[in-house]
Nucleic acid binder design. Structure first.
Length: 500
RNA sequence: GGCCCCAUAGUUCAGCGGUUAGAACGGCGGCCUCUCACGCCGCAAACCAGGGUUCGAUUCCCUGUGGGGUCACCA
């Protein structure tokens, strides 16, 4: 049961993405650094799926993570699909382990059962916000007698298990990139370890698995710094040897905030579909927060592995600049020989799966086979030119103030992430969602759909809108709509000035 | 707001006590050229501020400022 983690044995590292939605660039980024470190030292790189959030996890996105990482050439040694000596590598399959460990914590008094309802917690939180005081659990159930608490739980009363954090003193750890980081215990919340549905939270599952899988170095994003003391407390409570911690800077949007799909494409698949070369993409990620030194910035994965050391890693959060990525990509495309480029074009741009939906759409609208290409042009590439047809679209919304239009489009863009029907981005779901959205926003279908049509294709005459959007794809549509919104916002207002 | 992290051109990185502070992307100008792109040449562009330490600070320390993260029965 004890893990093989002598300080001089080969390192074991891991990434632990949760399978919710599209494979995130941030996951690939952390994967790259973990991979590079592991390979550099002849260690193992493990992929563990953290699917403890039953509400958000989806089976498809686990596959998507595999696919995205493999596309980039970031291969793992142990994982749910390839197996390994410390499996299972999917947390939903390790529930008994967590139950066992949590019981130990309960018995040693490092954790306690909490029967507070969500309502009470919400109320507590509200008061804390109003009082502008400290946030966090107030310790209501802390002093419950363990035996009676146990009896209540066994009688079926819903409860969670919380970590008992000392009131006094401080908890510290050494970050390999940032030095010693210390937190006053009073600042640390009594973190929930086990949810009422019997699933562990990230904090518990993460520490238990890292220990049991013999993880020696935890390399992850700096968003985790604040919760690391909780993990440290857990290691101490269990009496386990702690791994070394390295918190990398977070990838940022151009405005400096944490990279998010609201502001930037964040799906690895977007970059694949747009035709970035995987080796280029990896190289580009490797220039963020890492440097070979000597002003060298073009390198292969193998070269990065060979050169990898923590002294070359910079802890600040880099902006992910798609313009520079595109420049790298253009450069690498030029370096491909013609045969190779042709092969990649076929594989990436013209595969059967991608073309087939377009074939169906186009069939009854083209007169000659060759018309196909201009007809489907709007399904490829990034930006689209909507300026020519804008006056026509504008007429459809001539009674609206510019701001109304902009807000409606922004709202739609925001909502497609929240609404489950739109999230899948298929024609049927999109239509249902969009019609409801019209109702809610007070826009007529003819108004909104016209705007979306122009934004997505640059034209006023297209196949049915929602079939079109499905083929254009969510990420591409998001990009185009962002561009369109900026364009409209930059137009002079056309509605009468007295209109509210 | 509390706590934590970070800080060199617009952006990504070099620098690791003494440099005309270097490169890439982007920007600007030029050359090449039937156009565009490529290619080539050049220009502008940075050490957040104030205190220390030191013979000497972009570099080490402190404070401030700015940016970011985090404060869930999400990870």
């Amino acid at each position: 049961m004890s893990a093989p983690s002598d300080s001089n044995s080969a390192p074991r590292v891991r990434i632990a993405p949760s399978p919710t939605g599209d494979p995130h660039v941030g996951t690939a980024y952390m994967g790259l650094f973990n991979y590079a470190f592991a390979r550099r030292h002849g260690g193992k790189f493990i992929l563990r799926i953290e699917d403890t959030d039953q509400a958000r996890s989806t089976p498809g996105s686990e596959q998507a993570i595999f696919e995205a990482l493999r596309w980039l050439g970031i291969e793992w040694d142990e994982g749910p699909d390839v197996g390994g000596p410390f499996g299972p590598y999917r947390q939903s399959e390790r529930l008994p382990t967590y139950a066992l460990e949590v019981e130990r914590l309960l018995q040693s008094g490092h954790a306690y059962r909490c029967f507070c309802t969500r309502e009470r917690l919400a109320e507590l939180r509200k008061q804390q916000v109003e009082a502008k005081g400290k946030f966090g659990y107030d310790g209501h159930c802390r002093s419950l007698d363990p035996e009676t608490a146990k009896a209540r739980a066994e009688a079926g009363e819903a409860c969670v298990v919380r970590l008992r954090v000392p009131d006094e003193g401080e908890t510290l750890f050494v970050d390999g990139l940032r030095g010693t980081i210390r937190f006053a215990n009073a600042e640390i919340d009594d973190q929930v370890l086990m949810k009422s549905d019997g699933f562990p939270t990230y904090h518990l599952a993460n520490v238990v698995d890292d220990h049991r899988m013999g993880i020696t170095h935890v390399i992850r994003g700096e968003e985790w710094i604040t919760s690391t003391p909780k993990h440290v407390l857990l290691y101490q409570a269990f009496g386990w040897k702690m791994p070394e911690f390295f918190h990398l800077g977070l990838l940022r949007n151009p405005d400096g905030t944490k990279l998010s799909k609201r502001k930037n494409p964040v799906s690895v698949f977007y970059y694949r579909e747009m035709g970035y070369l995987p080796e280029t993409f990896v190289n580009f990620m490797g220039t963020l927060g890492f440097s070979m030194g000597d002003d060298v910035e073009r390198f292969t994965l193998a070269e990065m592995v060979e050169a990898f050391e923590w002294e070359k890693v910079h802890p600040g959060g880099p902006v992910f600049d798609p313009v520079k990525l595109a420049a790298f990509n253009a450069d690498d495309i030029r370096d491909l020989d013609d045969e190779e480029l042709y092969r990649r074009l076929l594989e990436r741009v013209l595969p059967r799966e991608r073309l087939m939906p377009m074939v169906r759409q186009t069939k009854e609208r083209i007169k000659r086979l060759d018309d196909f290409v201009p007809y489907v042009a709007c399904f490829f590439g990034g930006e689209v030119d909507y300026r020519a047809d804008w006056p026509k679209a504008q007429k459809k919304v001539k009674k609206r103030a510019r701001k109304e239009v902009v807000d409606a489009l922004k709202g739609w863009l925001d909502e497609i992430e929240r609404d489950p029907r739109a999230r899948a981005f298929d024609a049927e779901g999109l239509e249902a969602f969009s019609r409801d959205y019209c109702e809610a926003s007070g826009f007529k279908a003819g108004e909104l759909f016209t705007l979306l049509r122009l934004a997505s294709t640059g034209r006023m005459a297209t196949p049915p809108l929602f079939d079109t959007l499905e083929i254009v794809g969510k990420d591409r549509m998001r990009e185009r709509l962002r561009g369109f919104i900026a364009f409209v916002a930059g137009q002079p207002d056309w509605a009468a000035a007295d209109k509210k």
